[in-house]
Simulated assay, not measured.
Amino acid sequence: MDVLSDVITTMRTGRPASRRLRVDAPWCYRFDPYEGAGFHILLRGTGWLLAEGAEPVPLATGDVVLVPQGSAHVLSHVPRPEGAVPLDDAEAEPEGRVEFLCGKYRLDHTRGHPLLGSLPDVVHLPAGPGRHAELRAAVDLLAAEVTGGRSGRDAVVSGLLDLLLVYMARAWFEEHPEDGWPRALRDREVAAVLEALHTEPAAPWRLEELAARVGLSRATLARRFTALTGQPPMTYLTWWRMTSAAHLLRTGEQPLTVVARQVGYGSPFAFSHAFKRHFGRTPAQFRADASPPEPR
């Protein structure tokens, strides 16, 4: 599986949700901090997104905004947050001149991946001719489905919301190709190593083998991989194995021996020791605990 798909699958903890709303000025809606990511699409009219400690972001028709860390923010008809009320309290106005689609993804940030962590607190993707055609197509389909009553609507909307998250992240990466993780995904050798580690996390990888696989020396691979991802290859592999194991423990009922084998450990004892060192508790405790712990 490719890295971005792997990351989203591992972090997701539930189904996404969305709401389409039509209003007239004045309007001002508050979004409290959320364990996940939020998004907004301005389908008609203009508005502003206000985030603490940041300059107001002007929004025009067709603009898309992703709030990847689920931080608090406000949507308003003016660049001021005074008088904001929760979106749940909003009353739709059928003839309103402003229309937007808001939604959220349930993501566990304790299993957060630096790929999504590299995104800014607010990702603004302005509309424009020829910009991000796949994202625009998904927006159009989603806007039509959320107000329709056609059979299969729930399944279609859920799938389109998943597509939307990928397209929003991909659009930002394409606009910032020289940044750390976007650059890592564009670097042929580093990307090939990442794909190998994500495709076969249980394989007994060694740095020598990975370097030979992509035609680099051990030192060159270690230096380039670390510069672009923030971790040496084998450190990243251990971290990804533990993150994947946490996902398996939380979402499945496989015996510990199976989970251990799926993330590259030959014995439950060795796996439990590594897992406790990483998360501060045993796999059994982690699975039983309803609230995710913070990694050490």
Rank of each mutant, 00 (worst) to 15 (best):
M242W: 14
P204E: 04
E93N: 15
R287L: 14
Y265E: 06
D179C: 04
V98W: 02
E35A: 13
P233K: 06
Y236F: 14
V74L: 06
V67S: 04
E200H: 14
R296G: 13
P182K: 07
L141G: 07
R170I: 00
G130A: 12
A138W: 01
P292K: 15
W27A: 02
V23G: 00
L21P: 02
L163N: 10
H132C: 09
L87K: 07
A84G: 13
A202W: 01
E208I: 07
A143I: 06
D2M: 10
Y34G: 08
T251Y: 12
A219P: 06
D121Y: 07
A92E: 14
Q231G: 08
D2I: 09
T226M: 02
E253L: 07
G38I: 11
V98D: 02
S217Y: 02
S71H: 06
A246I: 07
T110A: 08
A211R: 00
V122C: 03
A222D: 05
L50Y: 05
W181G: 04
L248R: 13
W240L: 10
A127L: 04
A138Q: 05
D88Q: 15
E95Y: 09
L248P: 07
Y29C: 05
G252D: 09
S71I: 07
E175V: 00
L163S: 13
T243W: 05
R186M: 06
D63W: 00
P68L: 03
A290L: 15
R213Y: 15
A245R: 08
M168H: 00
M1T: 11
R186T: 04
G215K: 13
L228D: 01
Q262D: 12
G103W: 00
P293C: 15
T110V: 12
I41P: 01
R150N: 11
L249P: 01
E95P: 05
A196N: 08
Y236T: 05
D88G: 14
V146H: 02
R186W: 03
D179Q: 13
L66R: 00
W172T: 00
G38M: 12
L197F: 08
L4I: 14
V7G: 14
S244P: 09
G38P: 09
V156F: 11
G117E: 11
V193A: 05
L216H: 09
S76C: 10
A169Q: 00
L142G: 07
A171H: 00
G130M: 08
A51N: 08
L160T: 02
T147F: 14
L249F: 04
A274G: 15
G266Y: 00
E95D: 15
A60C: 06
D32Y: 09
L210I: 01
L163M: 11
C102L: 09
F100D: 00
D63C: 04
L119T: 06
P292T: 15
L160K: 02
S272C: 05
P86M: 07
V258A: 12
L248A: 13
H113F: 08
V64M: 03
R111K: 07
A284L: 08
G280Q: 05
L197T: 04
L237C: 05
D154K: 09
A155R: 13
R20H: 14
R287S: 12
E200S: 14
V214P: 05
K276T: 11
V156Q: 09
R186H: 04
V65I: 02
G180L: 11
E200A: 12
D89L: 15
A171S: 04
T46F: 15
L21G: 02
R19L: 10
L163D: 11
G159I: 04
L42W: 03
V65D: 02
T10K: 10
A290T: 15
A196R: 09
